[in-house]
Design a protein around this nucleic acid. Structure first.
Lengths: 267, 267
DNA sequence: TTGCGGTAAGTAAGTACTTACTTTTAAAAT
DNA sequence: ATTTTAAAAGTAAGTACTTACTTACCGCAA
């Protein structure tokens, strides 16, 4: 098996996607364009999987000008973070939560219209994910590759969402509208439905071959499940206590048989 | 900024993690060991981010040995898939669903003990994810990098889960135990809670700083939310119809203002 | 003695980053 | 209005090193 001349057998696609801008550009514009191109490529192939040459070609310039604008490839990444964190007036990274809050969710909250509150948040998140697939992929690559972006997003966004929704749930629990349950677990359940749905759609089932529903329907159904799920109801006790005991039982059982396959090499 | 002598400033960790086996090995053993090591490294740094040199060093052999066993790096990846798909009697890739089905879930199903059914599946999946973090990361890298592994897993595992749980839900709907709702959406909601919880724990919040609960508790609460969420109940109509109409409204509203930022460069 | 597990030392094509040099542009000096 | 100037935009061709993969050659047990 002799070596093939073009070694890019792995991913030959997206090689010369857009020679882009032709003429000379003002410094700031070029810089922004490079960040834009880099973001796209990093989201497609990851930080390690993207070469500075590819970025240069896609931006329609020589490699050297990338290093005129950014000292290192690493710096390009942090530039992306800055760009996302504070690009003008619409900070992308705070959009999903912050905008949702501002945009009418707050009033629904004071009106205690639970369905409207949760459905709005769900729909907003889904629409955001659908529109900015690039960013979702970037986030996952970032988490896997251990870059700052994911940590920053987690602290700024996810934490905020948990606190925000969590405190609303606590309030409604005090109202007697929701049953007693750890609000953070409830938020995780809700966020899980939404985010997993988005991730599935953008990462695994792009063709929607398994499940193809419009965002509004998904948001409505997820909200319905969650709200019925945490509804205080007419003091209805959990019918089957067997389930609980049983879960604990199999937990114990399989905890013992943990060390079976992976014990082979020291350390 | 002069070039540093060791350029590995990006990720200096895990460079010489395990020189591993010393002496000569039988062909088959060595092969399996290499696959094992490669799997670990691919899950940590991705396919593109892992060099054959690193794999060789971690396996305690020279690089040439790797290419004696596997024609290309790509081949190593497919070997991982084969290893996962049909390693002896316990096919790892079919474990989460298939084993859960065999192991007592089936009886709970025929007994129509919904809580036991869902809690068992949830707990089983979570435990599997927790034990095999490596595989979870591998799956995500695979999805992002566009390798076969993720597609194969999706077809073999996720599809099965959806069909399996979906048909049970349909059955219970016919029984009048569950309210009418798209079973696939319900499965997505449930799987979302579980998988997002696992993914969060292994990818984003490893320290559990946001939410730290044992798997059994998470499984129990997620099950509770889902089952109450789809319970047929005493024919209780959805209280606030406002939520539904409203969701459709904001969907329409934001659909118009879609093309704002990303319209700049042609393709 | 031969087949197999193993290695040292390549090789060609990347890979991040530099250097030395040319062109464009826009404002200050004439 | 023209010339000067100088900063900034740009390039071609490196540099030092990595990377996937090869070749030629060991040593040892059956």
């Amino acid at each position: 098996m002799t070596r093939q001349p073009d070694k890019a057998g792995a991913t030959p696609a997206a090689q010369i996607p857009a020679p882009a801008a032709a003429g000379r550009m003002a410094g700031g514009d070029r810089r922004r364009q490079i960040v834009d191109v880099a973001m796209r490529l990093f989201s497609e192939r990851g930080f390690r999987g993207t070469t500075t040459k590819e970025i240069a070609t896609a931006a329609g310039v020589s490699e050297a000008i990338i290093f005129r604008h950014f000292a290192t490839k690493e710096d390009l990444y942090t530039a992306i973070i800055d760009h996302k964190a504070c690009s003008g007036e619409m900070a992308d990274m705070e959009q999903p939560v912050a905008e949702a809050i501002r945009c009418s969710v707050a009033e629904h909250m004071s009106a205690k219209d639970d369905r409207a509150v949760f459905a709005h948040i769900a729909l907003h998140m889904m629409q955001h994910h659908e529109r900015d697939t690039e960013f979702l992929r970037l986030l996952f690559y970032s988490a896997l590759e251990g870059h700052q972006l994911s940590r920053m997003f987690w602290e700024r966004n996810v934490r905020t969402l948990y606190e925000f929704l969590g405190s609303y749930i606590r309030e409604r629990q005090r109202d007697g509208a929701f049953r007693g349950a750890d609000p953070l677990v409830v938020v995780r359940a809700f966020a899980g439905m939404i985010i997993h749905h988005s991730v599935t759609n953008t990462l695994w089932d792009k063709s929607r071959s398994l499940l193809n529903i419009p965002n509004e329907e998904a948001a409505r159904e997820f909200t319905e499940i969650l709200l019925r799920g945490i509804d205080a109801g007419p003091a209805k006790a959990a019918p089957a206590r067997a389930g609980r005991a049983d879960v604990a039982a199999i937990a114990r059982a399989s905890a013992t048989s943990r060390r079976a396959p992976r014990a082979k090499k020291g350390k």
